[in-house]
């Protein structure tokens, strides 16, 4: 059945070359854990992406109940976690995944660094990778405020003070982030929500696409 549907579409749109171009390529021996077990270090990039997908999915579902508003944010989080079926699990996936994705991206960076994979001609991919790392940190920083509890609030107070300590543009960047020169409140929460849910994920998807296109174009770096 599925085969017939596929053939029907393929006959008209010739989709086979599209997915073959993405999926059909050899895994070099030095990258394959079946040949050398130590090659598992090459998995961290893929694991980072895997967790990123989980973050996007669980985040989408969380916004079904979450409200970015200082009066309701905390209550809505408490409701979705305490009263909605599997709320603890879905929020838990997003909560733990957020930490895990940083761990994975860090291990991936270490592997790229120690195998020298960042060297010519792959310097640009290293640069994009570092940008992805910064976007991830931004996602972690903005997402931390959203439950709007004491921990979230004071972590953001500290984070904004760090932004303020930047020479010349410090005050400006702090106001830009918090939406008000003095108050960390209503505008800060909606801004952080917008940044967390639209701006940074958008940037992330663009950067990931660039990262993957480059690795396909250049191929994986050779053995040590």
């Amino acid at each position: 059945m599925l085969q017939r549907v596929y053939e029907w579409v393929d006959e008209r749109l010739d989709i086979t070359p599209m997915w073959r171009d993405i999926a059909d390529h050899e895994v070099p021996e030095h990258v394959n854990p079946a040949h050398h077990f130590s090659a598992f270090v090459y998995c961290f990039g893929g694991l980072t992406f895997f967790i990123t997908v989980i973050q996007i999915l669980s985040g989408m579902f969380l916004t079904m109940y979450y409200v970015p508003d200082i009066v309701n944010a905390y209550e809505s989080v408490r409701y979705l976690q305490g009263d909605v079926a599997y709320g603890t699990i879905v929020r838990g996936m997003h909560h733990w995944g957020a930490s895990l994705v940083i761990v994975m991206i860090f291990l991936h960076t270490l592997r790229v660094f120690f195998t020298g994979a960042y060297k010519r001609p792959r310097e640009l991919n290293w640069v994009v990778g570092v940008l992805i790392f910064f976007v991830m940190l931004g996602l972690g920083f903005t997402g931390y405020l959203l439950p709007w509890d004491m921990k979230a609030y004071f972590a953001t107070v500290v984070g904004l003070q760090i932004a303020e300590s930047v020479p010349l543009v410090g005050t400006l960047s702090k106001t830009l982030l918090s939406g008000d020169p003095e108050i960390i409140g209503a505008q800060t929460l909606t801004r952080f929500f917008a940044i967390h849910v639209f701006f940074l994920p958008g940037a992330l998807l663009g950067l990931l696409a660039a990262h993957f296109i480059m690795i396909r174009r250049q191929g994986i770096s050779g053995p040590l």
């Binding site: 989980i54 999915l57 669980s58 579902f61 079904m64 979705l80 909605v84 079926a85 599997y86 709320g87 699990i89 879905v90 996936m93």
Partner: peptide, 15 residues
């Protein structure tokens, strides 16, 4: 394992 908890979470109002 990833999708089912989210799906159940989403359809909670119906159930």
């Amino acid at each position: 394992g990833i999708i089912l908890p989210m799906a159940r979470f989403a359809i909670d109002p119906v159930l």
